[in-house]
Design a protein around this nucleic acid. Structure first.
Length: 558
DNA sequence: CGAACTTGCGCC
DNA sequence: AAAGGGCGCAAGTTCG
């Protein structure tokens, strides 16, 4: 059964039971309390149909209510509009309703920020519906979505995509709610160790000051401002060294006494600004780092975050992610995921078998690169990213001789992109069109470019679509893993001390659990990875094993 | 003055 | 001649 739910704006909710095809089964029901309504239905295992998980579910979690399944209408609308090449069209329920009824399509609101708490269908939103009943509108849009899903080329896969995307949104809200265990005291000590003690507001820590002073002196300008690339370039040029940029890989090639100082400064400065004390006080509270995940925030289906930079936690500060006493972090990452996904996508059984041996790059090296593993890896990544410079082109050619199906698959995706076409992930997530922005009713005209520029742009587009098919299909798999996992974990441990999913980053998950539950969690993880592979890719010889480590500290996992 | 863009780095 | 995908973030820089 499905149950549609619309918050009333005064803390209550309207609900209505639906059949699997979206047709209403009973009459609308008014509840004075949203969490009570949801908690009442949840034991019967419904799929909740609601506008936007990240609006509703955090409120439920705050009230202690967890749900198993949902259909997120906004995320689904985004997938469906993307499927027909209308990426960037407004995705709200009101917009979908307007398209359905031929009314004027309201633009989406600006992205929700952390400190606003908008309610869908509140006063501000009531207008776009033109007085229509919000529950009726939700029902109509949902039923229409089910119809449109049925009309896609591969409805079974698209249904799975919608379910996985929606389950991912549930997981995102749950992870934002529970947070990654984070020891602020350990983090602060770490910073002091690396940077020197924290200074008064605005002043850089001692070690940064010393480094920048020494680097500036070495470049012969005591007042040189290292944070300004332009100034640094000028200083090097005065020393007779012309640089294309101040990127660290460029600097590494230069023999000058200021270079090692500058490189060390850059690394420490990075940690200071991105993961320093300011980050700590903004994002870590009560022993947990609580980022705001944005499911579907990346066109490829990867998540984004809004603040906190949860998907870019610097390796050196992972030392502060420490399990609660008596608990452990079970860290699992899908090693070599993208080449394995490519094997499944392309039906390249030979590549799949290479992956089945464990270390895919090792097997690749033995098969096609005379045992040279580093070259095998570069060749594979070059094929995935479209790199042709240096040695890469030769390595891709070598790869292609032994694994033609896999390499041809990404080459084909690149060709489609270069000629202006769209590509899709395995489950049907579609890449955005080449032009920068779709506006409702037509393409945004772009200024005419020089012929040479358009060639470069087409090739860039080809690299994008080439990578999209693999990255987005890997995201399909990762979402299926997450969906399987969050359900499977509820059966482990004891009430009040269940394992909790605390982190997800593209191809890696962290489960926080009691030490005595770690073995069971590990088994469930392995099983979930297996299930995700089978559910998403069906009958394929490709394997998607997880590297799993149960550790007290995140930094010890790798 | 803030907005919008650029640079360079971190993660995958 | 060169040709590496996706992001977020913070500081610097430029623009209105």
């Amino acid at each position: 059964m499905r149950v549609a739910v619309v918050p009333t704006g005064e803390g209550g909710a309207w609900t209505r039971e639906l059949a699997e095809d979206g047709q209403p089964l009973g009459e609308p029901r008014l509840w004075t309390d949203l969490p009570v309504a949801v908690a009442a239905y949840e034991p019967s295992g419904p799929r909740w149909v609601w506008a936007h998980t990240m609006d509703i579910y955090p409120r439920l979690l705050a009230a202690g209510v967890r749900v198993e399944r949902c259909h997120d209408v906004e995320l689904t609308e985004t997938l469906l509009m993307g499927y027909v090449g209308r990426w960037g069209s407004p995705r709200s329920v009101a917009a979908a309703w307007a398209r359905l009824t031929g009314g004027p399509v309201p633009p989406d609101k600006a992205p929700r920020s952390r400190d606003t708490q908008p309610t869908l269908f509140d006063a501000e939103q009531a207008d776009p519906l033109g007085g229509a009943d919000p529950l009726e509108v939700l029902l109509a849009v949902h039923a229409d979505q089910l119809r449109r899903i049925g009309e896609t080329a591969l409805p079974g896969r698209f249904r799975l995509l919608v379910a996985a995307e929606s389950a991912g949104a549930l997981a995102a809200a749950e992870m934002g709610h529970v947070g990654l265990p984070w020891r602020a005291d350990v983090h602060s000590e770490l910073l002091t160790e690396m940077l020197g003690p924290r200074q008064a507001y605005g002043l850089p820590p001692r070690k940064l000051g010393e480094l920048s002073e020494r680097a500036a002196l070495a470049l012969g300008d005591r007042k040189l401002h290292l944070d300004s690339p332009a100034e640094v370039l000028k200083a090097f040029s005065r020393a007779g060294i012309r640089l294309s940029s101040t990127r660290s890989w460029v600097l590494k090639e230069v023999d000058h006494p200021a270079v090692p100082l500058l490189l060390e400064y850059k690394e420490l400065y990075r940690i200071y600004t991105a993961h320093g004390w300011a980050w700590l006080s903004a994002w870590v509270h009560d022993g947990r780092f609580r980022p705001e995940y944005v499911p579907g925030g990346v066109v490829s289906g990867r998540w984004a975050t809004r603040g906190g930079g949860a998907l870019q936690i610097h390796k050196r500060v992972r030392r502060a992610a420490i399990a609660d006493p008596g608990w452990v972090l079970v860290v699992a990452d899908a090693g070599q995921l993208e080449p394995r996904v490519l094997a499944a996508l392309s039906g390249d059984e030979k590549l799949a078998r290479a992956g089945a041996s464990g270390d895919l790059y090792r097997a690749l090296a033995d098969e096609a690169f005379g045992g040279d593993r580093p070259r095998a890896k570069i060749g594979m990544l070059a094929a995935l990213y479209g790199q042709t410079s240096g040695e890469a082109g030769v390595l891709v050619a070598a790869l292609r001789r032994k694994f033609p199906r896999a390499v041809d698959h990404v080459e084909k995706a690149a060709q489609i992109g270069e000629s202006g076409g769209l590509v899709r992930s395995w489950l049907g997530r579609t890449c955005p069109p080449a032009t920068s922005g779709w506006v409702e009713g037509g393409l945004d005209p772009e200024p005419v470019e020089e012929a040479s520029d358009s060639g470069a742009r087409n090739r860039a587009r080809g690299r994008f679509t080439r990578n999209f098919v693999v990255q987005a299909s890997a995201a399909d798999w990762a979402l299926a893993l997450l969906a399987t996992l969050r359900t499977a974990l509820t059966g482990i441990g004891v009430e009040g001390a269940r394992p909790e999913l605390v982190f997800f980053q593209h191809d890696e998950v962290i489960v926080h659990c009691r030490a005595e539950d770690a073995a069971e969690v590990t088994a469930v993880l392995e099983q979930a990875a297996e299930t995700a592979g089978r559910v998403v890719f069906g009958d394929t010889p490709a394997r998607f094993p997880l590297d799993i480590a149960a550790v007290e500290c995140y930094a010890d996992a790798k």
